[in-house]
Amino acid sequence: MSVTQTPPAPTTSRRLTTAKAIVEGIAQEMERDPGVVVIGEDVGAYGGIFSSTAGLLDRFGPDRVMDTPISESAFIGLGTGAAVEGMRPIVELMFADFFGVCMDQIYNHMAKIHFESGGHVTVPMVLMTAAGGGYSDGAQHSQCLWGTFAHLPGMKVVVPSNPADAKGLMISAIRDDNPVVYMFHKGAMGLPWMAKNPRSVGPVPEEAYETPIGRAAVAREGADVTIVTLSLSVQHALDVAEDMIGEGVDVEVVDLRSLVPLDRETVLTSVAKTGRLIVVDEDYRSYGVSGEIAAIVAEQDPALLRAPVQRVAVPDVPLPYARVLEDAVLPNRERIRAAVRRLTQA
């Protein structure tokens, strides 16, 4: 099997959904390494509620693809213990929102053991979880919460926006010797039962490859304004960038891809070029990713900015249920477009 370190420009014409790209990445690593197992609720016969493990049970059997009881603390901690002993478990927390019932195992154990042991113990584990709203699932099943995980030291956090990165980041996460929280957005999986952006289906190379953790991608080059964003919001931002061509505005879109480690250099380079920064984040506005990105620029050189930073994020309110209310708080195209106009017409 060929293993390349960086994703080749996808010359392939083969197109996969994000979900299928994730599964392909997991399957290729399971073929390569018998220590890779998949553990979680409904990861077996169901194939993951958001299809992140579809078909793996048939291919690898119940010894390597294991449904669990609804005991998140027990099975996430089990993953940590197995990783300490040299396995490379992929443990799925069905919704990121469910971290409330098991956070101790995540941030006090999985994330801290390497540090507390002075580097003598490693925890090579992937905690895969579904994030995001946009389909009226209410306040307990729609949150992104990546800022919360990224805030707590000791775990890498990756947030793919497209199928090719989803596969490459999964392979990188499995091979990484650290715990990696792998957060996919439900709305970017390309599921047949949820409205989707066409960008949720895309070219994916067939061979195994790594997408480097900690390196952002310039998803679209532009000269006038930088949108720094992640996950599903990258798709919205790219749509808005195309719309804005008609208004004579050239938008650059930076896809963070990883929150931990964070690629500060790519953010600063882009802002230095455009002088204008919008941060689009589907997580809560305060104390999170959008503030962190603004702080990076402020710490480096506030003079990079020709206009104040704009933030498009969830305005510190739980995600409402009613469609019209949820749309009002999510960073959708209309809100992003309005921010671009505010900034470029100022």
């Binding site: 603390s73 901690g77 089990l78 213990g81 990783a83 300490v84």
Partner: peptide
């Protein structure tokens, strides 16, 4: 582990391995 009861799940994982 300094957190009461939370040392049990990692032991499960070691036993699993």
């Amino acid at each position: 582990s300094g957190i009461v009861g939370e040392g049990l799940p990692p032991a499960l994982g070691q036993a699993f391995a």
